[in-house]
Computed example of a mutant assay.
Amino acid sequence: MAQTLRPRPLNLWLYLGIPLATVVALLLLEMTSLDMNVADLFFDQSAGQFIGRHSYVLENILHDRVKQGVILFGLLSIVGFAASFVFKRLYGWRRELGYLVLALGLSTAFVTPLKQLTQVQCPWSLTEFGGKETYSKLLDVRPATDKPGLCWPGGHAATGFCLFALFFVLRDRKPRAARAALVMAFAAGSLLSLGRMMQGAHFLSHNIWTAVFCWTIALSCYYLVLYRPAMAHTPARTGAGLAQSR
C-alpha cells in the first residue's frame, strides 16, 4: 500500500510573522522619505522623465506580455480544474487545482477595489516628477484633485507575486519544487515591481504592500482549502505499518 499523502505541519508563526513584520516596517516607512528617495534614483532630471517611461522592453514585454502570460496560466488552471472532474489522472490534483484557481483569482482581484478606495497618485503624476498632482502618503488625507490617483497597491506586481500560490500547491507533494516556485514567484514579482518603478508607475512601498497581500491570500486559501491540521500531526501509516498493527 502506498503512503497516504498528508499535509506537512504548518508553522503559522513563521508564515504569518514575516508579512506582519513587513506591515509594521511599511507603516514606519510612512514617517520617512524613502519612497521619494528611491523614485528619484529612476528620474532623469535632464530629460524631465523617468528613465523607463517609454521603454519598449518594460512596457511591451515586462508589462503587457508577462501579464498576458499570467492570465493565460490562470485560464489553464481553470481548464485543469474543470478537467479534473472528467479525467481520472487529474482527480488526485483536484483540490490543488481548485486552490490555484481561487488563490490566483483573489490575488489579482483585490487590486482594483483598493486602488479606487485609496486614490494614491503615481510618481509620474506628481509635481516633483514633472506632473501636476500633489504628493501624499498612504495614510495622509488626499489633496483636492480633478483626477484621483489609482496607484496603491501595485497592480503589476501582483502579476508576479500571485504566483506565491504555486508554492502552496506543491508544498505537501513536492517540497523541493515548492521552494523553487517560491523563489521564482518572489523574483518575478520583484522584477516586475522594479520595471514599473523605473517607469514611474509606482513607489517601492506600493509593490511591497502587494507582496504582503498576495502572500496572505495564498496562505489563507491554502489553510482553508488544502491544509488538514489533524492529518499533518498524525504519523504517516504505510502498508508495513498497517500490517504490524493488525
Rank of each mutant, 00 (worst) to 15 (best):
L139H: 01
D172C: 03
Y91F: 15
T127P: 04
G52F: 03
T134I: 14
Y91T: 14
F110H: 10
C214S: 07
L204R: 02
A230H: 11
F42H: 08
G189Q: 00
V169E: 00
E133C: 12
V225M: 10
L26F: 04
F73I: 11
K88T: 15
N11I: 03
G155D: 06
E59T: 15
L72G: 13
H206D: 14
G98P: 03
L41G: 14
E133K: 08
S107F: 04
L14A: 06
S125C: 14
H54W: 11
L20E: 09
A178R: 03
M184W: 10
R173H: 06
D35G: 08
M184C: 09
A21Q: 05
L75Y: 10
M198H: 07
D64I: 14
F186V: 15
G241P: 01
V212E: 06
L62V: 05
L106Q: 06
L102F: 04
R65P: 02
G105N: 04
P153N: 06
A177R: 06
R89H: 09
S136R: 02
R176F: 10
V101A: 04
R228Q: 15
R179N: 11
L170F: 08
L126K: 07
A180K: 11
D172Q: 02
L242N: 08
V141C: 00
R173L: 06
L58G: 03
T118Q: 09
Y56N: 12
A230F: 07
Y223G: 01
R237I: 09
W93E: 10
A103G: 11
T238H: 07
V101L: 07
T22M: 15
L163K: 04
H63V: 07
F186M: 12
G241V: 01
V70P: 03
G189W: 04
T32P: 10
K115T: 02
L75F: 11
S55N: 07
P235R: 01
P229L: 01
V70E: 06
